[in-house]
Nucleic acid binder design. Structure first.
Lengths: 354, 354
DNA sequence: ATGAAAGCGCTAACAG
DNA sequence: CTGTTAGCGCTTTCAT
């Protein structure tokens, strides 16, 4: 849009367009003399030359642009982090990304892919908004799957998902290390990959310690109400667990309110650990919630970097299946269990009252 | 990428590329005969022709792409909605958007604008992540400001911001209509546009009702801890307010815990209303929080639609300053004040205890 | 009503 | 070492 073209730069420097092009792209080794190169550079600087990438793309066939097709971004507050990771990774390597959210509609997915093709994107990232198994789209260009994977890898596409198992393991390990031996897991009934894998990781860690015991309580839903529901059951158990691991931070939030109503205190009487490290929630609870975070930003970045790797270097491995573990963010909701094992307000009082 | 070019379609249909181009874009009125037009369309369909937008852009000078430069997306969970609104609006009109987040760095902003220019974007949206006053960038193309505005409109750019005043007014009005007359406003000390305007709207509404009274309590911070801080003061007031309006949902969350600790119940003993309608927080609190929502999605969409309007129709008004009001989302945290005005657990017990 | 030709700005062969 | 030539695929005068 600046309007100054390569031809003008070449004229100003007194060389041909070809030479100017080579010099400015740093491909003039053994071509332009130092003198010529210098003239080109100053001419470009003087005129404020900026290459027209549209023209370059038309000629070279590469746009340095990737399309990101997301299934349904509206359903989760973590989507933003994933997209941000993707954008940033692209930007850092001089690439850009087009994002289209299909809102769950297959028809839009098809149109989006056609749209990407028309704009000559070099590759595609297909993103789900929570960990699941999908069939990879086949748009006739390299594809990377983000927060989802193929049931059985076809060997054609790479994918990155969160390491849910490690998350569950980490949470349990943290509680065990603090000395907890009787640990409740507040789960939710919805059947999905994350729920199952987190539970597996949790159980794996507990099985590590001989005298440790895992108790599972299942609620209908993974929201705060579900957390209340499961926590009421957990408090009724005898002896009462000294720590609870919640499937989501929202469930932990519900658990908090039940615990408060029972006259118990966190972490003095009972420790709580959540999952998701949900911004503005985990850190806002009183006391702030210890939680396992899923590496959404990193996953977004990984997907784009992987894609660019194969795009820029055609014999970079095309089918890596990666699981990325997230950190445990320790806050104030976990402490060692009381030495005495005081029973506090006892379980029978743990009724809801609304 | 399909590889089918216009020339091939033309050949297949037995016409010239020019004719094919005109026909396929629907500009062949009074040009191609019905027969020719039909041949072109079937040829295109048979070959699966898709126009190469890169080539079209190079020739026509327009890319149907806009650049969205955001100051710092990481700082808020609402950013995602705004960007989604922008993307969707663009998609619905056949446009795409490049997003770059500058992370607050001016140097990146400059580079982003250059990058957009090189890719020939047709216009720019400049977005802040919370309502503020800025100086508009001048990239040599039409600009729309999103969630920010110029101190004094230069007449060159349009802008859209949330109607904070209306939000404060709506919240207060809702409480007044339920019969509340003594209403606390839990504010936070950080000085910014949103805080000031919401307070003004709130006070305006209260001033509407002769015997109504507004009490303001200011905390250091707009998070849950700040909410606790301000709520403790509010409960100490005598007579105790029957309703509180919180500057943010997070503050409301803090207020909830103080209220519970004081042995009071929401909404029976005291009504609470928040601001932001923060997903996974407002709806997850117990009881669910009534809150005023800011129309982030709509603002994102407005900005892009406005920009495309002036891009597609050059005499569309170029400098509209718009404020968009958001809805009040009524949940269960508000009820009419108690007829008797029962004092419940009295104010002196409202101490924190951690 | 239609085709020929020029050219958007750049890159990549090919000559010299 | 450097310049010339030929397009990438499309749109748009300008002839016919």
């Amino acid at each position: 849009v600046t309007g100054v073209t390569l031809k003008q730069v070449a004229a100003e420097a007194g060389v041909s367009a070809a030479t100017a092009s080579l010099v400015l792209r740093g491909l003039a080794t053994g071509r332009a003399s130092d003198d010529v190169a210098a003239r080109v550079h100053t001419a470009a600087a003087d005129l404020g030359y900026q290459p027209n990438l549209t023209a370059r793309s038309l000629r070279s066939g590469a746009t340095m642009t990737i399309g990101l097709l997301s299934d349904d971004v509206a359903t989760t507050p973590f989507a933003g982090r994933m997209l941000a990771g993707a954008q940033d990774a692209a930007w850092n390597r001089g690439w850009m990304v087009y994002i289209v959210d299909a809102g769950g509609k297959d028809e839009i997915k098809d149109r989006a892919i056609r749209s990407f093709q028309q704009r000559n994107v070099d590759g595609l990232v297909y993103a789900e908004m929570y960990h699941q198994i999908v069939e990879a789209p086949k748009p006739g260009m390299p594809v990377v799957l983000l927060d989802c994977r193929e049931a059985v890898p076809t060997g054609a596409v790479s994918s990155v998902v969160p390491d849910e198992t490690a998350g569950g393991y980490t949470a349990a390990k943290f509680l065990l290390d603090q000395g907890h031996r009787r640990i409740a897991y507040l789960a939710a009934g919805d059947n999905n990959v994350a729920r199952v894998l987190r539970a597996q990781g949790f159980e794996l860690a507990v099985a590590t310690v001989p005298d440790a015991e895992a108790l599972t309580f299942i609620a209908g839903n993974s929201d705060a109400a579900g957390g209340r529901e499961a926590m009421v059951q957990a408090l009724a158990a005898s002896p009462r667990p000294t720590a609870v691991f919640c499937y989501t931070d929202r469930m932990a939030m519900g658990a908090y309110s039940v615990i408060a109503e029972a006259g118990l205190r966190i972490p003095d009487d009972i420790s709580v650990i959540g999952f998701d490290n949900q911004p503005f929630l985990a850190d806002a609870l009183v006391p702030p919630l210890t939680s396992v975070e899923l590496p959404h930003y990193e996953m977004g970045a990984w997907a784009v970097n992987k894609l660019i790797d194969v795009l820029e270097d055609s014999d970079s491995p095309r089918h890596e299946q990666v699981r990325l573990a997230g950190p445990l963010v320790a806050r104030e909701s976990v402490a060692p269990p009381r030495p005495g094992g005081r029973e506090g307000a006892h379980a029978a009082s743990a009724r809801t009252r609304r």
